[in-house]
């Protein structure tokens, strides 16, 4: 059966909200609850991060989240399996696995795709697997209609057209130079950059890296099809770690996150 969740996701006049969370931060159980909550408050796609010991594209917030998750024994395979639990408990939105390449290589590309099918995952994003190194795997992913999500950056220049025209699922636009993390300013040419990307992409164009306020989202909305929020959410989870690990206070944290996300995207 062909997987079409991502293909039908983009409705006219709606900006996709794509939250990123780290699988297993601080526990796998909490990640499942959080995923369900995010769908409830309006997430259109879930980006599920896989912790890695050496995350080159990530700033301190996601680095620390990865360490917490690794301490709880999280791995690529376990993160993928976690999605079945989310599905069993009613998650319907597309899920994208966000992982560095080395864990994929160790499990084997073929096996990863097999597991994605088995656990109903809609796509995969590998920040350190650029266009040139990903052709074969991208084709395999497309054949299974579980696309490899491509990234473009403000420094992509002449590469934009090549990357954007072959993008599937959605296209991840990096808002500014640097690693993930909350920041005040985007690249000064961001709007020209987004227009250039949109010109070439048939897939929805989503912007990520450093988006943490509703003002920023309002500014970006007219120029893109989706907004990715990662570090801002992960930072909040980090600040409430103790409460999350305590059964009595966990519900309250989920409510706080709900309020935060609602204020962000309203």
């Amino acid at each position: 059966m062909s997987n079409t969740r991502l293909q039908t996701i983009k409705k006219a006049d709606e900006t996709l909200f794509i939250p990123f969370i780290m699988a297993g931060d601080p526990t796998p159980e909490f990640t499942v609850e959080l995923a369900l909550l995010l769908e409830e408050v309006g997430a259109n796609i879930l980006e599920l991060g896989v912790p890695y010991s050496d995350p080159l594209a990530d700033g301190p917030v996601i680095q620390r989240a990865a360490l917490r998750a690794l301490e709880h024994g999280m791995s690529l395979k376990k993160a993928i399996e976690l999605v079945s639990q989310m599905r069993n408990r009613g998650l319907t939105i597309p899920v994208i696995i966000f992982t560095y390449y080395n864990p994929v290589l160790q499990l084997g590309e073929e096996n990863v795709l097999g597991l994605m099918k088995e656990h109903d995952i809609d796509g995969i994003l590998i920040p350190d697997l650029p266009y040139e190194e990903s052709r074969l795997f991208a084709k395999r992913c497309d054949d299974e209609s579980r696309p490899l999500i491509s990234l473009v950056a403000p420094t992509s220049n002449q590469r934009i057209e090549q990357i954007a025209t072959s993008a599937n699922g959605f296209l991840y636009c990096v808002s500014s130079l640097g690693v993930t993390g909350v920041r005040n300013n985007f690249d000064e040419n961001i709007y020209e950059f987004l227009q250039e990307v949109k010109k070439h992409s048939k897939a929805p164009v989503a912007v990520g890296f450093g988006i943490s306020s509703s003002e920023q989202i309002k500014q970006l909305k007219p120029y893109c099809d989706g907004i990715i929020v990662g570090s801002a959410l992960v930072k909040m989870i980090e600040s409430k770690n103790t409460e999350i690990l305590n059964n009595e206070t966990r519900r309250k944290v989920l409510l706080d996150i709900k309020t935060f996300v609602q204020s962000l995207i309203s």
């Binding site: 594209a57 650029p130 266009y131 590469r159 990357i163 990096v174």
Partner: peptide
Amino acid sequence: ENGRFGEFGGKFVPETLMYA
């Protein structure tokens, strides 16, 4: 021409660095 020594090497970096 792909930066490989046999199967080894390559460029496994974020897109932001590819142009550089």
